[in-house]
Every structure is written in structure tokens, then in C-alpha cells.
Simulated assay, not measured.
Amino acid sequence: MADNRTMAQMLQAPIEGYEDAIVVPPINANNFELKQPLINLVQSNKFTGRQDPHNHLRFFNKVTSTFRHPEVPNTSIKLLLFPFSLDGEARDWLDKEPPRSIPHHGIDLVSNFINHSFHLPKTTYLRNKNKITTVYQEPNETFNEAWERFKELLRQCPHHGFSELHQLDTFYNSLNTNDQDALDSAAGGNFLDKMPLMVLAII
């Protein structure tokens, strides 16, 4: 079929292909709108690609669960608000996703977001950078401070791949002799002879 457009019409910028990656199902509710204070709250903790994405999702879910509309599913509200929670590299990632490539349920959005934020090379980098396996109790660090710091290292790299057994063994071996002795005493013998659940209870 012949194209009957003029050259001026053909040279105009296309008006298609600008749809968002996130597919939000049609909302038929009367008088529904996202309130600016809610958008501001979501934007108060933007994810740029350098923070822990799990923490970001926890914050985002907590904020968005405070807003309810009787005729609008909470999932739709989350899908509408999620782009407002991103900035920098993370926003660039979402903008580069193909139009309508993230279907209208939260599982796909969360999966895409986490997989992008924690692809394998980044996980390896974080695991090596934060030195989970080579952690040692600082000279003036209390037992509680060492435990909290170790848990924070694990939180910073949620895809670390270390089993609970490996984590507990690593932590025990990172402690100074006095704290190891205290754990052994609390365990009534060798700390590492106990089951992981008992070890956590002792800690």
C-alpha cells in the first residue's frame, strides 16, 4: 500500500512507542487520584541502584499499604507509584525496559527489580567487598556489636549464598577467644556441637 503522507509528515517524530514498561490494569473507580503527599512520601526514600533493594521494597510496601481505595486494588496503586520511588541508575533501568514488558501484577515487577539490582557480577562484587568470609571482631568491639555488624554485612548482600551453618561457623570463628569461650560455656560444651537453632538461641 502506498504511503500518502507528505515529506513533512514523514519527518515528524513518531508518537508511538512511549508507553511505560509497567502495565497498570484499567482503573474504573470514580474520583481516584494519587495524592501528592503519598507521592512525596514514596519519593522521600528513592532507590538509585546503590542501596539494598530489599530494604527499598520493604519501605515501599510499608508506605503504599497505608493508602487504600475501596474500588482500586492495592497492587494497582503500587504499580502506579513504583516509578516515583526510583532515581539515577534505577530509573534509567526502568526507562530502558521495553514498553508494556512488565505485566500487571506485582510479582513480575519485584522479580525484574531484584534481578536487575542483584545480577551475579554485582553479587560477587558485594560479597567480596563487604568481606563476609573474612570478618573479625574488632579489638574494642563487644559481642553484641560484632553480631550486629555481621548481620548488617549479610543484609548488604542478600544473595551471598552462604547457608545458615556457614554463617554461624564464620561468625563464631570471627570472635575473640574470650567471646568464643563464653559461647562454649553457654552451650555447655563445644558451641559448634549444637544444632543451628540452638546456636541462634544461645547467641
Rank of each mutant, 00 (worst) to 15 (best):
D95I: 11
G17F: 11
S65F: 15
S101L: 01
L80V: 02
M7G: 04
A146W: 07
E152W: 08
M10T: 04
P139A: 06
Q156S: 06
T177I: 15
R127T: 10
Y136K: 13
S101V: 03
N55A: 07
P37I: 06
E33C: 12
K96W: 14
L86H: 03
L57W: 12
S65G: 10
E148A: 14
L79K: 00
V110C: 12
S85N: 04
P158N: 10
N115R: 11
S163Y: 07
F60C: 09
L126V: 08
E141R: 12
F59G: 01
V63A: 05
I27E: 03
G17Q: 14
C157V: 08
A21F: 01
V23N: 01
A182C: 11
V110S: 03
Q9V: 06
M198W: 03
K96S: 13
I203G: 01
Y18E: 15
D193F: 08
A90R: 00
E33K: 06
F150T: 01
R100Q: 15
L86R: 00
N190A: 14
V63Q: 04
L175P: 01
I202V: 07
P73V: 15
L175G: 00
H166F: 04
N40Y: 13
N176E: 05
F191I: 09
I77S: 01
E33Q: 13
T66V: 01
L38A: 00
T64W: 04
R50P: 07
Q43L: 02
V110I: 15
R149N: 11
N4I: 14
L200R: 15
T6L: 09
P139I: 10
T48S: 13
R5E: 09
Y125C: 07
W93L: 05
N55E: 11
T75H: 04
E33S: 12
N40R: 08
Q51I: 13
M198K: 11
S163H: 08
G188W: 08
